[in-house]
Design a protein around this nucleic acid. Structure first.
Lengths: 218, 218
DNA sequence: CCTACCGATCGGTAGG
DNA sequence: CCTACCGATCGGTAGG
């Protein structure tokens, strides 16, 4: 009787520890700037040992992205499937996606740019995982368009929405003045053409007094 | 009489050749994956020569970003300043920004993530250049909000809009079915809560038949 | 999973 | 701006 939790060949838990450490480091420092030694050290291994679990650094990235996307998709489905009203469902999806993104649960979209380092076949696998993640979104957008709540659900809409959401990783700070709930509400408001209704989001129109409070990059 | 076009110390044209090559390569392959040898070769120099013009690889990145942002801001101002109607002005700004971004004129926002490689002082300089680029946007958004055309111009609005626009670099393909003008129109439509009015943007609500035509990543 | 190590590459510099 | 080069780092492997 070994001490593993589940009966699996080498040591499945070490493998997923490596994956989580790799994902975190890739987000923090980028794929190229993260060394396999960094990853090994983060889980208490020696420099050569990650290669016992993964053939290459690229495979670590691929596995981390696909794993993260699938976990995120599952979380999305779980918090969303039971909601019948499309607007309420979209609100929950936006909130869940921002959580995936900004609370460290599924930073995969932040790593999209790093797939440059992968070859075509690996990129295709990742693109398929992204497709699965996006599936429920298009459906909900079309329901909203059919109900007249959303002006258009033509293809660019979903991609522009993801842009709005995913770009938050470039400027949102958890210690800033905006909570995740308020941010989600702002996204919905912009998308549906309404003023945000959550408390505290609004600021007097003249605002400014030192530009904006949020960290200010593009 | 030397053969330079302008009377400047070392050789100003070689310097800007290096900057343009560096910007292009950094966008293509990322900062870390681009070697100073790549950059040298792109302008026909030997491996050590870029360091005659720039102290370090980091300085190349910093100069390329700031130069690109200032050129882009100038282009934005030029195509925009004379337009009095705020909605028409925003439309022109969106179109100009997408041109900066996607037609290779000012890829600086695509390099935002690469500033990880820089130290705090360099990042601050770049943030200041981004601020200057964003200045005219906030004003126009506030005019639109005051006129009731836009639901809210509170701080997140501008950042969410930039997200929508900047993320297009992750999925837009010039050889796809969507022209830049149509894309700009889609952005405006989403922002102002209207159906896109340009020709060809719309697709029958059921669309699909193989997911979407645009390259499909988050 | 560790020890020991290799081959290649890279940013940067000396010295013209 | 070139030649020649250094020191350091890095992904990956052999061989247990």
């Amino acid at each position: 009787m070994a001490r593993g939790r589940k009966p699996q060949p080498p040591d499945a838990s070490r493998r997923s520890e490596l994956l989580r450490a790799a994902a975190r480091l890739f987000v923090e420092k980028g794929f190229d700037a993260t060394t396999t030694r960094d990853i090994a050290e983060a889980v208490g291994m020696r420099s050569g040992s990650p290669f016992y679990h993964f053939r290459s650094k690229q495979e670590l990235l691929k596995a981390a992205m696909i794993g993260g996307l699938e976990a995120g998709a599952e979380r999305l489905r779980a918090t969303t499937a039971a909601i019948a009203d499309p607007e309420a469902r979209l609100r929950a999806m936006v909130r869940a996606h921002l959580g995936n993104l900004l609370e460290g649960e599924c930073p995969a979209p932040m790593l999209l740019g790093e797939t440059r380092a992968l070859d075509a076949a690996e990129r295709a696998e990742i693109a398929a995982a992204f497709d699965r993640y996006q599936q429920p979104w298009q459906e909900t957008l079309e329901q909203l368009a059919a109900a007249g709540t959303l002006a258009s659900a033509a293809p660019p809409t979903r991609l522009l929405l993801f842009g709005m959401l995913n770009w938050t990783t470039q400027w949102y700070r958890a210690d800033g003045p905006l909570s995740l709930d308020e941010l989600a509400e702002s996204c919905i408001a912009l998308l549906l053409g309404r003023a945000p209704k959550a408390p505290g989001t609004a600021a007097p129109p003249e605002a400014s007094a030192g530009r904006n409070a949020q960290r200010n990059t593009s």
